[in-house]
């Protein structure tokens, strides 16, 4: 457990954030805050994310919206350094997690990724059994006993509301599940390593409406326990599940605010245009 309070960080380096204060900083003391300070991501010479500055309040659900190619997925993947895989990709500016620079030289990427979990657009369970999928993360990070592991798998599956459906066939191949079940399994897999932050990259775009509703219900249930950042194409979804919404356009952060405010009373003209469907 990281005990560095956010206030200490604020003293050391006050970031220029566009949201002045998290909505309820007091309640969010349990986790570590995620902050971007004029953070840019480049693909070669192309600047995909331009000088984004914002903070993601702990324990709340933040939605990233914007038209295709606006850099929201790139930004999301930059948070747990998944972009390291792309050779031409590099970053400028600062990104903090719990006061530590995510792109700092001594940061342990594996620990970072354990603490910032991710759920992908397409359900991507490993071609292993359901049990092995969920146990994959815990096995990596700690040598726990068989009993602990069983318990961890069960808890995670219960959190993902999948336990009742799969408890009789834990050893079955995960690829045999339906798309919605697979995505919930991926969620359970991410939860099994006890992350503080969950990144979701359009988690429902490959699913049917019923499975989408199930995932949305889950996000709702996880609110408060995890800081959740969700990229979505679907503005209704953003409105339904998120506390905060950030609008990105051509790599720049145009506006960020409480979801109810942003959807009903946007401050920026471009936000309004996008929300009312004039482009995008």
């Amino acid at each position: 457990m990281n005990n560095i309070p956010t206030s200490e960080f604020a003293v050391r380096r006050p970031p220029a954030v566009s949201v002045k204060t998290p909505r309820n900083p007091a309640q969010a003391g349990n986790g570590n805050q995620l902050m971007a300070d004029s953070f840019s991501v480049y693909y070669g010479p192309f600047e995909a994310v331009k000088k984004v500055s914002c903070a993601f309040p702990v324990g709340e659900v933040t939605a990233l919206i914007g038209p295709s190619g606006c850099g929201k997925s790139t930004f999301l993947r930059a948070i747990n350094r998944m972009n390291d895989l792309i050779p031409s990709c590099h970053v400028k500016g600062l990104l903090y997690f719990g006061g530590k620079r995510i792109y700092g030289p001594k940061l342990d990427v594996t620990v970072l990724r354990r603490r910032i979990g991710m759920v992908f657009q397409k359900p991507n369970p490993f071609p292993k059994s359901i049990y092995d999928n969920v146990a994959y993360g815990p096995r990596l990070h700690a040598s726990c006993s068989r009993r602990d592991l069983d318990e961890r798998v069960e808890t995670s599956l219960r959190k993902a509301a999948l336990w009742d459906e799969v408890k009789d066939r834990l050893q079955a191949n995960a690829l045999g599940l339906s798309g919605g079940q697979q995505q919930r399994l991926c969620l359970a897999r991410a939860l099994a390593v006890n992350p503080e932050v969950l990144l979701m990259d359009e988690p429902t775009s490959a699913l049917d409406p019923k499975a989408t509703a199930a995932i949305e219900d889950l996000i709702d249930a996880l609110r408060g326990a995890y800081t959740i950042i969700i990229v979505t194409h679907n503005m209704q979804q953003a409105a339904r599940v998120s506390d905060l919404t950030a609008f990105l356009y051509e790599g720049s952060l145009i506006e960020v605010g409480a979801t109810s405010q942003l959807f009903t009373n946007p401050k920026e003209k471009r936000t309004e245009d996008y929300i009312t469907g004039r482009f995008g």
């Binding site: 990281n2 719990g98 700092g104 342990d108 620990v111 354990r114 006890n194």
Partner: peptide, 13 residues
């Protein structure tokens, strides 16, 4: 449940 997490630190020595 979060207490199960190993006490690892982001920054390596």
């Amino acid at each position: 449940n979060r207490n199960h997490a190993p006490a690892d630190d982001l920054i390596l020595s």
